[in-house]
């Protein structure tokens, strides 16, 4: 119980630190925000820009706790409603590509871990090294070129209305594919999983289980759950970062695209809101990881 309280406390504390970091990057750098955007005193007041900095921070933080990130400095729309509008496709994209990369990486990683020196294992290594080094935007072009060259069209408008299989598939499949394969996500997964499989495979208790003639997969499975979840969590940040590029290439309207646009327009409140939401998402995953570790690993329960 003590350890769980500690973990939750750390979660809250680190989120606070993150918010402080974001706030200070935006507000402590030279340049007056109200001047940049030529804001009217009313808008500036609405954004608390006329208060001293600590007060600004606490007011902003208070708003954030209630999912209110202020208003856009460019068009005055509520940031939270923008995020709420753009988040669902992004979440679908993120989890879709996470799922895809795991589906590909787990079999490859397990195979490579069990037979690291076999020809296929070496081929897998070479393949993932090469894939990891293709930037997302280049890969996006390659994929677009191939798809466009073969099918002669590509859909760029989000499907509307009730769920229909083909429109959804054709809209989401390419971004999901590029986000999963590019970005080094699959490569990282394969490398990590195979290393972990190698470690477990050479562990003494697997040898002992083998000597008892007992089924090994049970022991393997239990020891692999935590590492796999761990690598997912570590890669969440990379995945969310890749969103910006993928959504830009495919003109996919999600959080990444929104943050790109906000940066172009220097829309501070939007970018702060998005960053905080993403950090929150990552932190939730980290929290889940820590709790899972306490739940599954008896050594962590102390």
């Amino acid at each position: 119980m003590r350890s769980i309280a500690k973990i939750v406390g750390f979660f809250a504390g680190s989120l606070l630190l993150v918010s402080l970091l974001i706030f200070s990057i935006i507000h402590l750098t030279p340049g007056d925000i109200a001047e940049i955007h030529n804001l009217s005193p009313g808008t500036a007041h609405q954004l608390y820009l006329d208060r001293p900095l600590p007060a600004q921070y606490f007011l902003w933080l208070k708003g954030c706790l209630g999912f209110d990130f202020g208003i856009s400095m460019v068009n005055g729309a509520k940031v939270s409603s923008q995020i709420a509008e753009y988040a669902p496709p992004t979440l679908l994209l993120t989890f879709g590509s996470l799922f895809l990369s795991l589906m590909v990486a787990i079999p490859l990683g397990v195979y490579r871990g069990l037979r690291p020196v076999s020809p296929l294992g070496k081929f897998i290594s070479l393949g993932i090294y090469t894939l990891s080094s293709i930037p997302v935007f280049v890969l996006g072009y390659i994929v677009l070129a191939v798809v466009f060259g073969v099918f002669r069209f590509y859909v760029t408008t989000p499907p509307d209305g009730p769920f229909q299989f083909w429109p959804y598939i054709s809209y989401y499949s390419l971004p999901i594919f590029v986000l999963a394969v590019g970005n080094g996500t699959i490569g990282e997964f394969v490398r990590f999983i195979s290393l972990e499989v190698q470690n477990v495979n050479s562990a003494m208790f697997i040898k002992a289980a083998r000597a008892r003639g007992s089924r090994l997969w049970k022991h393997f499975f239990r020891s692999m759950v935590l590492p796999i979840f761990n690598i997912i969590v570590t890669n969440m940040a990379v995945l969310l970062g890749g969103l910006v590029v993928v959504e830009r290439i495919f003109n996919f309207h999600g959080l990444g695209w929104l943050s790109w646009e906000a940066t172009l327009k220097r829309d501070f409140s939007v970018i702060m809101g998005i960053t905080l939401v993403m950090a929150f998402l990552i932190r939730v995953f980290m929290l889940a990881n820590d709790l899972l570790a306490v739940w599954l690993d008896p050594r962590m329960r102390e």
Partner: peptide
Amino acid sequence: ATIFQEPKASLDPFYT
């Protein structure tokens, strides 16, 4: 049946 040098490592840490 076989037993090994490192008895604690021979037991799966996740199982009782």
